[in-house]
Design a protein around this nucleic acid. Structure first.
Lengths: 342, 342
DNA sequence: CTGTTAGCGCATTCAA
DNA sequence: TTGAATGCGCTAACAG
């Protein structure tokens, strides 16, 4: 008799001989009835096994669900295992959890936001969705949207100054005009394959990668080094497999590079591995810099010199922008993490 | 004029001079109207910017949302960064994505499932929720539930034979009756702190940890080694910080252990690190075995000898159980991964 | 302070 | 094949 019935607001009200509005108020608007009455009703409901108004119905009626779509830039498989994304999610969830907001995972590679848009109060986007259609829809929706590492007009966003950061870290890596520099880029091209870039005109505009590339090139130019176009690689996603291919190509090319500018720590770690395999000493024979500041960049040997983005803090910040209905974006600070790799 | 209106089934039907049911049928039940008419309607809707029935209302009406709660054993912060959990999620999401099911993240440390139960079609649980109240509620709900690494009566589950696996790996680690064994256990006690166990009666019953412990002890007994009770540690969660404390305590205790049986790879990795720090050679001075088979266990040096749980496959399997309404549980195979640590 | 009522947007009978 | 009516479970006005 425990699971006696699937109570509804109406049925429970009937049972208690009060109007359904009173029960509703007891749960949602304490000020609308006496404390005593409210407690009686709540107690009776608990007793009978009614745990409060149905959330789905509530959501339909109120137009608010306390569910937010967490838009990952690509498919879930990849993003969950990416240390940067995980760290960001950690930051986001620490805030949403506190506000009773639930997160619905959503892949940026999906066809359309239509399958979830009616369920959620808005979208927290971690990186630009790989499907441009999604960005369009995000632009068009009237739900709340906040973004990280890319911008949508009229929406709050958080981002570091990628060009400046890349410039700084590259300056640190480049020692002389005779350095042989290679760039291991992340998502520079709209191509799902590891390959060289060759033509800078192919580089996607306004992306994080493009800004970092500008920073690298600026630093090189300033140091009197010219980076040939066959010294720039495109890596489609930040995984061991794809990165190692690029690292191998780069390190086996002639002249062998002595500076590797990597657009993510994972790429840098793959390069470090490859360097070890080849018997290259880091940083004596090869200097490597990364980007992101993931935990492993501190634990590996030698540790990585890299741009620390403070991803968890960025995650917290963007989530706070969401709950506070903030509109303006924010450029967040980064720090240079001094490691042994350069 | 693009974003002209927020169409509803009713308003769009009115606009098209058909009944709302017809539009509904056009979207949901193709067999209920002529192909031609359907296509006309669908085209007109697309034209006007109506993207189909409101999902929230549909969910209320049909009692189905295509959203499933992914119940993580603890808070999101921890679980997302745990390599085992990430891998499982990868497996789960590969299946759910294929079936158009969205995942709602839910922390096993939450107070109650009530805040989400009305939104979701069911629950996929990754490991036993730390809050026992959640398990009770999961037991009581009439929504679909499937579990991994713990069981709920009447629900499908996947799990390896933890005791047998622990037994096997321990047998491999123990070489002689003179071995000095220490066990670094994971969640053996209901205590949020790293500490020694001392009293075996305090060990939580029917948990994954308890089964593994039985396997270890069985192997030790069989090999003629007695494991003193002050040689068993409890680690509250599988993180670097907590694990390293236990590893340090164990390795600095007297007599210094020469065999470390670790209940997770992360713990084993922390121990490996600590061993390096102390100048102990692995496996000559100290043999270490892990549990799980995470990716890093293969990349570290020396690589870990461990129980490979095939977590991604387990994730896929449990998700398939969910979509197929499977009822019975399944004991999944494990393999022993031979590494250099033992 | 309490109860009545009209939708939120939709899917499903049941007639036509 | 189509259309009118009913209610999924709830909340917010409003009236009492």
């Amino acid at each position: 008799m425990e699971t006696k019935k699937n109570w509804t607001l109406k049925s429970i009200a009937q049972k208690l001989n009060v109007s359904s509005a009173t029960v509703s108020n007891a749960f949602n608007r304490p000020d609308q009835l006496s404390k005593k009455r409210r407690n009686e009703i709540l107690a009776a409901c608990a007793e009978l096994g009614y745990f409060g108004p149905n959330k789905a119905a509530q959501s339909l009626r109120k137009g608010k669900s306390n569910i937010v779509a967490l838009v990952l830039s690509d498919n879930l498989e990849y993003m969950i295992t990416d240390p940067v994304a995980s760290t960001v999610i950690t930051g986001v969830s620490s805030i949403t959890e506190k506000h009773g907001i639930h997160l619905l995972l959503f892949a940026g590679s999906s066809d359309s936001i239509n399958s979830v848009v009616d369920f959620v109060d808005g979208f927290i986007c971690i990186g630009a969705p790989t499907n441009p259609q999604i960005i369009k829809e995000l632009n068009a929706t009237d739900k709340k949207v906040v973004t990280m590492d890319f911008a949508i007009e009229g929406c709050a966003s958080v981002m570091i100054d990628n060009q400046q950061a890349a410039y700084e870290i590259a300056k640190r890596a480049i020692n002389s005009a005779n350095d042989r520099i290679a760039i291991l880029g992340l998502r520079l091209l709209d191509i799902e394959q590891t390959c060289r870039v060759y033509n800078l005109d192919d580089v996607l505009d306004y992306t994080v990668a493009s800004h970092r590339l500008k920073g690298y090139l600026q630093a090189a130019t300033e140091s009197g080094v010219e980076i040939a176009h066959d010294r720039i690689w495109n890596i489609p996603e930040s995984t061991q497999n794809t990165a190692v291919i690029a690292a191998r190509e780069a390190l086996s090319s002639n002249p062998q590079p002595n500076v590797l500018l990597c657009m993510s720590d994972r790429i840098a770690l793959a390069a470090l591995n490859e360097a070890n395999r080849l018997g290259l000493r880091v940083p004596e024979d090869l200097r490597i810099v990364g980007f992101d500041g993931i935990e492993e960049s501190r634990n590996c040997s030698p540790s990585l010199t890299t741009v620390c983005q403070h991803s968890e803090e960025k995650g917290r910040l963007i989530a706070e922008f969401f709950v506070n209905d903030t509109q303006e974006g924010q450029v967040t600070p980064y720090t240079i993490q001094e490691g042994g790799s350069c």
